[in-house]
């Protein structure tokens, strides 16, 4: 079976002035169709850069990258992206945001009545799926952060993308809202059969959502390890307290700490507490 996303020997270097940072160094990865894969790692490990490269928003220096069997040469309608924030169109209502892609030439535009009806059906279904029924005519700035992200996800799903790329979409939400969003996005994954690539810095989130976890490490940005998540497809919040879950979380956290290059220097902290003189 062919991989949905196929990455071979991908490298990317950022140069700002005299400093050069190797964001991606020889990335090899296959993502299967309808897989839910999560990227975690210390900051600067290149997880967001890799996601943006798949989305066609970031150019790479060498290597090959294909999605749905086509070479990635730029952003495309088959790879929708959900951002952390500021991506909704504030001048449009919730429904208009969701239906926005219908204005574009690449999608079936609302030319005939049948088109309009088909699109309305899907937009309504997405609105209900996201629990936004009552907010249909609201403007984004009248919604909470969690609601705004639901709109962003619904908008991204509207044109039935084969791949959904999510760049820390719940990073700005509070813990309770985030849990609700987790179950929602797992449900969307099941219903829509989308392949989801999800970047996060939250290890618990990465385990709860993913079928596989890609652990990345910085300087240079690389894949340190790939974990299979030992959980059934139907996830429940109480699984977060299971032994397998906690063991995996502990191991990944330890690996991230190891690779981040940041250590807590207890002796130094102790010195700070000493009275001066």
């Amino acid at each position: 079976m062919n991989a949905k996303i196929r990455i071979r020997g991908l490298t990317k270097t950022f140069a700002t002035g005299a400093t050069r940072v190797q964001a991606l160094a020889g990335i090899d990865l296959d993502v299967q169709d309808n897989e839910f894969i999560t990227f975690v790692g210390a900051s600067g490990c290149g997880k967001s850069t890799l996601l943006r490269a798949i989305g066609g928003l970031e150019y790479v220096d060498s290597g090959s990258l294909s999605a749905s069997g086509r070479e990635v040469a730029g952003p495309g309608a088959d790879r929708a992206m959900v951002f952390q924030h500021y991506s909704l169109y504030p001048w449009l209502s919730v429904m208009e945001n969701i239906r926005w892609c219908r204005r574009l030439a690449v999608h079936t535009r609302d030319r005939t009545l049948a088109d309009v009806e088909a699109a309305s059906g899907r937009a309504d279904a997405l609105l209900q799926l996201m629990g936004l029924g009552h907010a249909r005519d609201a403007y984004p700035n009248q919604l909470s952060g969690g609601m705004q992200q639901r709109v962003a996800i619904a908008r991204a799903l509207m044109p039935k993308p084969e791949i959904l790329l999510m760049d820390e979409p719940f990073g700005a939400l509070d813990a309770q809202t985030r849990e609700v969003m987790h179950d929602l996005i797992r449900h969307v994954h099941k219903v829509e059969k989308t392949t989801i690539v999800f970047v996060t810095h939250d290890v618990e989130e990465a385990i709860y959502l993913g079928n596989r976890i890609v652990l990345m490490a910085p300087r240079p940005g690389r894949i340190a390890q790939i974990y299979d998540v030992p959980l059934p497809d139907a996830r429940r919040q109480d699984m977060k307290h299971g032994q397998d879950f906690l063991a995996l979380k502990k191991e990944i956290l330890a690996r991230i700490r190891e690779t981040s290059g940041m250590k807590t220097d207890f002796d130094l902290l102790e010195q700070l507490n000493q009275p001066a003189g």
Binding site: G76, Y86, S87, Y89, C101, V106, P159
Partner: peptide, 23 residues
Amino acid sequence: VPMAQVEAAQTQGASRAEIVQLV
């Protein structure tokens, strides 16, 4: 105009002209 608005449009398949006009 926030880059995220532009990139959201790009990943929905919007052309350059469409981004100028619609975003």
